[in-house]
Design a protein around this nucleic acid. Structure first.
Lengths: 339, 339
DNA sequence: TATTTTTAGGTTATCGGTAACATTACTTAA
DNA sequence: TTAAGTAATGTTACCGATAACCTAAAAATA
């Protein structure tokens, strides 16, 4: 491996001079600089970031931990984060916790070992608290995405979940629906709780009563087993005419289940959900959604993180950004006239 | 930051003893081991991977470079790669070249700087050759995925593109189609070339003539501008009854275009393509596809890479794995009876 | 008991860079 | 002409870990 010393020897200068040329620091005569550069090219020199990180005590690596790599909300978010990171000269590592606390815990270890300069996390849920505390204890700056974790103070980018859910319900009501059910993520996730609240608010504002038999709480991730959801659907009597899904993945799961049972959407059941389906809503712009600004989640979160890292010394107040969701009306809701 | 020396001091042993405890090497009395471990826990010690990498000359980091992070083929592949990496105690970084040679070149630099132990690459195309040569020159083991790069010998995992395309054409023919067009990726990409050949083979086997006006070559990535494709569609006279798309993204783009022009699929036009749409084919299992074993691409590629790294000394012969594609028949092809 | 072997642990140098300080060679003003 | 200032470069120590070598004490063997 070519090192700074090989360059130094061949150019008949000291290693320090080479280092100065590489980093454009100190004073170097044009002649020396040219000579060193020529030798570096001749030998195809690439600086060893490992050695540099060791002495500089920074890796210029950031980490993005998401909960579902197949979910276009997160891949879009990842792109935003990546773009913002690159702009500031950081490189970005990804991790995928699959909504699992164990995997999340593994990644926190990885993060500490890799000595990354900062982390962007979509936490698995409230029980992620110890993981965040661990990052805090080890002095790793982090910014939360999409979900709050009660008990920890930090920078955070959130969507307006409550308002978005209310909007979805009100849209359904405007189309004549009165029996509206909800499939949601786990109540141990702050955004799921807020979406439930928004759903309840939407009902109340329209003088519809809330019935917890119409609510099914499961995981936001892909479901292996739909039988529980199936039982829930059967238990609702009278059946709802519409279902609000807490996110895009759940909407897809519900549709998969309904299709299996020969229930057609939107003719027999209307569906709306949080988050868009990325490029695949192009194929058939079907689902009516409360689209969150996924790219902005990543982009703004990353900018906050980098600012936090660069202002390590100063004690900035914690920042909180709340991004609104946009209602995109498509074809998954049927207008019904009162029976 | 807590270092091995802090532990050593507090446990009244040498740093080396601590290192031995951490790595389970050498001989250490149970008493000492327990004492050191206790101090490590007390101080929440996390080993500094940077320092370790410097001396061990390995980072235990691998890199996966894909060309489209929104494409479920690649996210599924990524998952396979991640699983295989984790099993062998490696961590995985991702990069996304967006089918762009410039971004790919950037990532190659990143890869060299980050001193990763090995790389899994889906190259942007034949012109990626210098990038691969650069990796080779710097002694970074790599495995290619999905696309060959003429001029470089290496381990590789490919799909059976020719056979898959032939299958798609034959399926269309079996449904009565005779005028079959193809939208494909750039001919500078090996898999695109093979898919074109497979398409031609499929036609020939059924005594259909090949007409290059029925073939449109563009990028495999998402298209910003559909106007060229639109002109192509208009130029075909008589118009085809079916289109074979070189991958899933192109299929989605074609459908987007057709929808915009009020042409309904499959009633007015049948569509088939390479690669499945991931979880989104659940929502409406619509597209008939030649599904590649995306997960296996990543999993097997990663296993080959790790073997290559671990057998660095031995000169293993280059390996080539070719994975077949499965025809999944859904609803995007209409059976037509001869007019 | 004396000698060899084994066990448990310590010392030192090193990985490839960079910060801080030191030195040399020119300029420039007095 | 000379002291002082500046520009250009070199020296040394260190970041945090580990490999290779070394040593003292205990255990095994003669």
């Amino acid at each position: 491996m070519v090192t700074i010393y090989d360059i130094a020897a061949k150019a008949s200068v000291s290693a320090m001079t080479v280092s100065r040329v590489i980093n454009n620091t100190g004073k170097i005569s044009e002649k020396t600089r040219a000579k060193v550069k020529r030798v570096m090219e001749e030998l195809n020199y690439v600086p060893n970031q490992t050695a540099r990180s060791l002495v500089l005590q920074q890796t210029k690596l950031l980490f993005l931990l998401i909960t579902d790599i197949m979910n276009p909300f997160y891949t879009t978010l990842a792109r935003g984060a990546e773009d913002a990171a690159k702009k500031s000269g950081y490189r970005l590592l990804f991790g995928n916790s699959d909504e699992s606390l164990e995997k999340e815990s593994d990644y926190v270890t990885t993060i500490l070992i890799a000595r990354v300069d900062g982390v962007l996390v979509a936490p698995a849920g409230d029980p992620s608290l110890p993981h965040m505390e661990s990052l805090r204890m080890h002095n790793v700056p982090f910014v939360l995405l999409d979900r709050e974790v009660p008990g920890i103070e930090c920078d955070i980018v959130l969507g307006d979940s409550k308002e978005g859910a209310r909007m979805l319900v009100e849209h359904l009501v405007s189309q004549g629906h009165r029996r509206i059910a909800m499939v949601n993520g786990s109540p141990s996730i702050s955004s799921a709780r807020l979406r439930l609240q928004g759903y309840q608010d939407g009902l109340k504002l329209n003088d519809l009563s809330y019935n917890d038999r119409y609510v099914y709480e499961t995981s936001f991730g892909p479901l292996n087993d739909l039988s529980e959801m199936e039982q829930w659907i059967d238990r609702m009597d009278p059946p709802p005419t519409a279902i609000v899904a807490g996110n895009n993945v759940l909407a897809v799961e519900v549709m998969r289940l309904l299709r299996g049972r020969g229930i057609s959407v939107p003719d027999d059941m209307s569906i709306v959900c949080f988050d868009d389906l990325g490029p695949y809503s192009e194929i058939e712009p079907f689902l009516t959604v409360a689209a969150q600004q996924a790219y902005q989640f990543g982009y703004m979160g990353m900018k906050m993180l980098i600012e936090r890292i660069q202002e390590r010394e100063t004690t900035l107040p914690w920042k909180k950004i709340v991004l609104p969701a946009d209602l995109i009306i498509r074809r998954s809701v049927k207008e019904i006239t009162q029976p």
